[in-house]
């Protein structure tokens, strides 16, 4: 059978493969602003335009970070924060996926659970802090619980929404091929909700890092949040900024790892490359 040219001409063009130069150029563009700020502030302090007491110059922050790292303190604090985020993220994500799947798939469960969960979502998460301390003490449990609460809601909303909006037409394809409920869930629902679920997990992870600070402000003796409080109490602005930078790096690294691990699952998506 002859291949009509018009048909093929309409094929979506294969996206051009990004070269090393393209990647390098993009990274360089992203670095312009932070580098300008670093150089500008450093020069301002060195030339006496600014004191640098409340906003220390980058070189002093770097020395503080180096000292913290060399003494082993930085790793101890990073480890404490990471363990809390990991545990809170795990509990929050599992609970969010389970609740989202339940309310997304079963209307009765949605009618029973969703109004309450939406009401709880409206409570500012920090409002739970006093209650968690009262219930769970001041050790690790209330911190992990607070992070889990922060992670739970975006994951819950994302998964429930994704399941509820699976294309009915694709479900019909499954019905035509006589898939059982379990096969339908595995072969159509699961892959269909995967991209939205991964996006929800990413949002949840970001909130996990947000909430770990609040959790560590509850009273911790280690963790990056503790470094912040300690820096505030002893007027060590360089330590506060060092902790903030450590948070930024950790958060970005965790996000990058999550995206890298899950990217193969969504490479069929047209938009995956653009959004992840």
């Amino acid at each position: 059978m002859a291949e009509p040219g018009a048909d093929d001409a309409k094929s979506a063009p294969k996206p051009r493969r990004e070269t090393v130069w393209d990647q390098g150029g993009r990274v360089a563009l992203g670095l312009i602003l932070p580098l300008a700020l670093v150089i500008g502030w450093e020069s301002a302090v060195h030339t006496g335009l600014a004191q640098g007491r409340l906003m220390p110059p980058p070189s002093r922050i770097a020395v503080t970070l180096y000292d913290l790292a060399a003494s082993g303190d930085l790793w101890m604090h990073v480890q404490a924060t990471l363990v809390r985020v990991a545990l809170g993220f795990a509990f929050g994500a599992v609970a969010g996926i389970a609740a989202g799947a339940l309310t997304g798939a079963l209307p009765t469960a949605r009618h029973i659970l969703d109004p309450t969960l939406q009401a709880l979502r409206a409570v500012p998460s920090l409002a739970w802090v006093p209650l968690f301390i009262l219930w769970l003490g001041i050790l690790e449990t209330p911190k992990v619980a607070l992070i889990a609460v922060g992670v739970f809601f975006p994951v819950y909303i994302g998964v429930a929404g994704a399941i509820a909006s699976v294309d009915r037409k694709l479900i019909e394809v499954g019905r035509i091929f006589r898939l059982s409920t379990l096969q339908l869930a595995r072969r159509i629902l699961l892959p269909a909700v995967l991209p939205a679920t991964l996006t929800a997990l990413r949002t949840g992870l970001g909130l996990g890092f947000l909430f770990v600070v609040a959790a560590e402000l509850m009273g911790a003796s280690e963790g990056l949040g503790y470094l912040l409080i300690d820096g505030q109490q002893f007027s060590k602005a360089d330590q506060i900024l060092a902790a903030i930078i450590a948070f930024a790096i950790l958060g970005k690294l965790a996000d990058t790892v999550l995206v890298a691990v899950t990217r193969p699952l969504t490479r069929w998506q047209d938009t995956a490359r653009e959004t992840l």
Binding site: D7, D8, A9, S11, A12, K14, W268, D270
Partner: peptide, 10 residues
Amino acid sequence: RWPRELSGGQ
């Protein structure tokens, strides 16, 4: 190929 890489007729 992925479905998104095909034209409507394909």
